[in-house]
């Protein structure tokens, strides 16, 4: 593709960042670096499990609910059966909301992590 690329040199006035100890700890595989990584990993995994838990508790529970309470199949909102309203329509915006929540929180976690490892150097 013909795309104009601007070629620039490195910024002239740049604070000397030779000592990035937070990232260095991770690169060197020290105990401290390991703690940093474990904290990010744990945070992200807990977030993922929370979102999946929400999905299971709202959507995943439906077959069981309809199995235990057969009367639910006859519940209607207006002309539409409840099951159709839930599985045919509402479930999609709900999953989109969950995805959006996840992205917001996971990116916040990553920002916190970035600040943490870069702050150590000062």
């Amino acid at each position: 593709m013909r795309e104009r690329v601007r070629v620039t040199g490195p910024p002239r006035r740049r604070a000397p960042t030779t000592h990035r100890s937070g990232t260095r700890e991770i690169d060197a595989g020290t105990e401290l670096g390991r703690v940093y990584m474990e904290s990010l990993l744990g945070e992200q995994l807990r977030l993922a499990l929370r979102i999946l838990g929400l999905l299971a508790a709202t959507v995943g529970i439906l077959p069981l609910a309809f199995h235990l309470v057969p009367g639910l199949a006859e519940v209607r909102l207006g002309p539409m059966p409840l099951s159709w309203l839930l599985l045919g329509f509402l479930v999609y915006p709900w999953m989109l909301t969950l995805g959006w929540l996840y992205i917001r929180r996971s990116e916040a976690n990553e920002r916190d992590f970035a600040t943490l490892v870069e702050e150590v150097e000062r």
């Binding site: 993922a48 999905l55 059966p81 159709w84 599985l87 045919g88 969950l98 996971s106």
Partner: peptide, 24 residues
């Protein structure tokens, strides 16, 4: 009937699971 709605729901939910556990 309605139990077949689980196919499209599951095919979409697969992406939510993929998003939170695998994508990045």
């Amino acid at each position: 009937g309605a139990d077949m709605l689980w196919y499209p729901v599951g095919w979409t939910a697969g992406y939510l699971v993929l998003l939170v556990l695998v994508a990045a």
